[in-house]
Nucleic acid binder design. Structure first.
Length: 836
RNA sequence: GCGGGUGUGGCGGAAUGGUAGACGCCGGGGACUUAAAAUCCCCUGAUCCUAUAGAUCGUGUGGGUUCGAGUCCCACCACCCGCACCA
């Protein structure tokens, strides 16, 4: 062969077809090899693959191909998280059907992924908008309903009166709908919920076993679940009612000087009924902004009611306030105010002139020490608290809870920050919720043999609101129970539901059931799950919940879906802007000397911060163009080089060019493989054996950037060496080490050196343990901790010899300059440090 | 405010408490060429210098432990991320 250049434009496609034809990456669940399930978070079919996807899937791909080389049966599937709002927005803006829009996006993106040469098992591909998939999802939802994990209640939602739809919190910006700009209303609607709170304790405890998850994600989930333990008890009110409150600090109960309820609390609402002042105050509380800045500076506001609350121990009558800082949906919506030891209560008491009593002190002698200008929430010893005096905070908590329980006026309780998961969406493009509303029988599940409840195709998006709601016929049906006229539920499931079990469907796809437990037992849990950190809470928590819930109802025996999680960094790019603040894309600018100017007319351009690629900043680079220009392998290599995978990767033109140069460099090196070569080059052979081990370790630790660096080193050494058997070994080693990373080049070169089989099916190269050890080492010689000289000695040289060699060094002698040697530290095979 | 992370050359980054800056990019010099591209070779932390040598400084800042600290401990600074009136 004489080609001097590797041509990706012909090689890439050829090998991609070869893998497809051979079924190289089709997972065989009957194989007796050890199983390895590698999964990247499946994409939303937005229309184009972006660099973030490329990075994500390249990492997973290297792992999948590596595992295969290591003798595993690998499951590495791909599918589409295909329901969601962008499809409906497209329908409204471009007058296309959400389904058609989604399908054509999937087709385009699949072609893009295939051009990158990912080792995916496309036989298992599905989209969550396939009726087969969402039909099984409806069945699982009904299973959960049967065991009481699904319920319906009235709940407050963000309602956009113009678009006539419910908005998620993220879609409300400064109190206005993100699309319509209309003032968002709070509305009470009947909503479906999943009882994730039943699993709060389990989901929290389960985090402890997820050792191969990033600590950061575990912590985020822990905080989100938000377990807190304390006392729930009731105050007797002067109005004759009882007011339940929750506190995590029952130990400070003697420091309580007021009681406060939320503006939406029933007690406040009752007062508002015949008092305009109260009504006005409540309205003011609700008006307060919800932005971070608004909360930061929000003043504590209260309305003093004529009601008093009786202290359970002292019997003292404490004033009852309606306060803007008390939340209705946490605890009981009412709190006991302890100004001395809670900052919010402190601010409130200061403003309304309420007593601030110290009940915790660092030392009992400081019981009467005045309070400073802020609350003291810390630990200490209890003071000014009758029978609690002298106890620690912990003891006092236990004591108060015990007395409350004995006296039957309170209970130790656990309160969670985690709420039940509201899954109703007044949207078209989602899984229909499989229930029927009947006047006589109320809520009736759709019988399973009538699933899937499919979406109607003939819908229009001309009018705002839910197309299912106003469809002429779709919702009208008969009651499965009584046979009378009834209506279908027109809400659809939150799209996060679709991604909560897709990994189970990848593992097995029977048509008559959501999954096959025997297959799940073979493949689950996912060995490596890779995706963006933005899913740290919602998706990953929901997926954990579904897995546990399904496991709980004996569908299978897997508790945690993802054994190891890896959250990769973003792909970033420099930004370019004109003087007027408008952004320019990378291909609209060029470098003119040290400055940036527009390609069009040379107008000066300001280059700005390196940030995540985004359409709004126009700093995006389209993978397709890059692949067309440099080939898939150069892009894949770039994605793995330089930046550690968990950190951001700055895209650069020169970087991708460097990768392309390396592809060609390797091609030339592989071309120098000489089947007739003879002779040994022990140093090079040693480097090759070391690299085989080191690259494997790096890949297993997902340290791709380090693996890349080692491959560069071995390549450089092999290039410099003269032809020999050892050099052939090194060249073959490089070829196999890059195979998971640059598979097209690897296949092409593998064929060129005369191999007929696919390198994708080849095993990882063997190494000789005896070749890992160097026989000479370079020793550092220090004087007073500073490097003075280095010497090369046989490995394992005796301490005394090392010391003698060190002292013999001319440089060392010069540095010593006759000083008296107090001590000599010798670390074998490492260094000698002379202390004077 | 609470929680977490990061900080090393011009840039991305390497470095079981043991030679800081591997590897890549950028930059400089040279070879090849009519020329260019491609390729190859050399140099590339800073300062000093009597310059093939040598010295000093150097991993955000200030302390500490140690024969020896990018790495361990204490305090601080900056930036990034998450949560946020959670009782």
């Amino acid at each position: 062969m004489t080609e001097t250049r590797f041509d990706p434009s012909s090689a890439d496609g050829r090998w991609q077809s070869a893998w497809t034809q051979a079924g190289t990456f089709t997972a065989d669940s009957n194989s007796d090899k050890p199983k390895s399930y590698i999964l990247e978070m499946f994409p939303y079919p937005s229309g184009r693959i972006h660099m973030g996807h490329v990075r994500n899937y390249t990492m997973g791909d290297v792992l999948a191909r590596y595992k295969k080389m290591r003798g595993c049966e690998v499951l590495h599937p791909m599918g589409w998280d295909a329901f969601g709002m962008p499809a409906e927005n497209a329908a409204m803006e471009k007058k296309v059907h959400p389904g058609a829009w989604t399908r054509s996006n999937i087709e385009a993106m699949k072609a893009q992924l295939q051009r990158i040469g990912f080792a995916l098992d496309w036989t298992r591909e599905f989209a969550t908008c396939d009726p087969e998939y969402y039909g099984h999802e409806q069945a699982l939802f009904l299973d959960m309903y049967e065991v009481g994990l699904v319920y319906r209640r009235s709940s407050e939602v963000n309602w956009d009166p113009v678009d006539m739809t419910v908005l998620a919190n993220e879609q409300v910006i400064d109190g206005k709908g993100w699309r319509s700009g209309a003032e968002v209303e709070k509305r009470k609607l009947d909503q479906w919920f999943l009882k994730i709170t039943d699993f709060a304790e389990e989901l929290l405890d389960g985090l402890g076993g997820l050792e191969d998850w990033p600590d950061k994600v575990r912590l985020m989930q822990e905080n989100w679940i938000g377990k807190s333990q304390g006392l729930e008890f009731s105050f007797d009110l002067s109005s004759g009612e009882k007011l339940p409150v929750y506190t995590t600090r029952p130990d400070t109960i003697f420091g309580s000087s007021f009681v406060a309820v939320a503006a939406d609390h029933p007690v406040a609402q009752a007062l508002a009924a015949d008092n305009t002042e109260v009504r006005d105050f409540i309205a003011e509380c609700k008006r307060g902004g919800t932005t971070a800045a608004a909360l930061e500076t929000a003043e504590k506001l209260g309305y003093r009611t004529p009601i008093t609350a009786r202290h359970p121990f002292t019997g003292e009558a404490m004033p009852l306030f309606i306060a803007n800082f008390v939340l209705m949906d946490y605890g009981t919506g009412a709190v006991m105010g302890v100004p001395g030891h809670d900052q919010r209560d402190f601010e409130f008491a200061t403003k309304y002139g309420l007593p601030i009593v110290r009940v915790v002190a660092s030392d009992p002698a400081l019981a009467d020490a005045p309070m400073g200008d802020e609350a003291e929430p810390g630990d200490g010893v209890i003071v000014n608290s009758d029978f609690l005096d002298g106890k620690s905070v912990g003891e006092a908590k236990a004591d108060v809870i015990a007395r409350a329980e004995q006296g039957d006026w309170g209970n130790g309780t656990t309160v969670w920050r985690l709420r039940d998961w509201g899954i109703s969406r007044q949207r078209y493009w989602g899984t229909p919720i499989p229930f029927i509303h009947c006047k006589a029988c109320e809520i009736v599940p759709v019988p399973k043999d009538q699933l899937p409840v499919t979406l109607p195709d003939d819908v229009d998006f001309e009018i705002p609101g839910n197309p299912l709601e106003r469809h002429p016929t779709w919702k009208h049906t008969t009651c499965p129970k009584c046979g009378g006229a009834a209506e279908r539920e027109t809400d659809t499931l939150d799209t996060f539901t679709n991604s909560s079990w897709y990994f189970l469907r990848f593992a097995s796809q029977p048509s008559d059931a959501p999954f096959d437990p025997a297959e799940i037992a073979k493949w689950m849990p996912v060995q490596h799950y890779i995706g963006g950190v933005e899913h740290a809470i919602l998706h990953l928590l929901y997926a954990r919940f579904w897995t546990r819930a399904l496991s709980h109802i004996s569908k299978f025996d897997v508790k945690e879906p993802f054994a190891a999680l890896f959250t990769q960094g973003m792909v970033t790019h420099e930004t370019y802007s004109l003087g007027d603040g408008s952004w320019l894309s990378p291909d609209e600018v060029r470098k003119d000397g040290a400055d940036w100017v527009t390609v069009k007319d040379g107008t000066p351009v300001t280059s700005g911060r390196v940030v995540k690629m985004s359409k709004s900043k126009k700093n995006v680079v389209d993978p397709d163009n890059i692949i067309a220009q440099y080939g898939a392998d150069a892009v894949r290599w770039f994605m793995l080089s330089d930046s550690p995978p968990e950190r951001d990767l700055p895209w650069s033109e020169s970087g991708i060019e460097g990768c392309y140069r390396f592809v060609q460099r390797l091609w030339r090196l592989f071309g120098q493989y000489d089947a007739n070569a003879a002779g040994e080059d022990k140093a090079l052979a040693r480097k090759a054996h070391q690299a085989i081990v080191a690259v494997a370790e790096d890949i297993e630790a997902l340290g791709f950037n380090k693996a890349v660096a080692r491959i560069y080193e071995l390549t450089g050494a092999a290039e410099k060496a003269v032809s020999s058997e050892s050099r052939n070994f090194a060249i073959r080693a490089v070829l196999h080490l890059i195979a998971p990373m640059m598979p097209h080049l690897a296949e092409e070169a593998h064929e060129r050196i005369g191999e007929s089989a696919l390198i994708a099916d080849a095993p990882w190269p063997e190494h000789d343990p005896t070749m890992l050890v160097e026989d000479e080492v370079t020793i550092a010689i220090q004087h007073k901790g500073k490097l003075r000289d280095t010497i090369t000695v046989p490995k394992g040289a005796a301490k005394e010899d090392l010391e003698a060699f060190a002292l013999a060094s001319e440089k060392v002698q010069r540095s010593l300059d006759g000083a008296e040697i107090r001590k000599v530290i010798v670390v074998p095979d490492r260094l000698v440090n002379i202390v004077t």
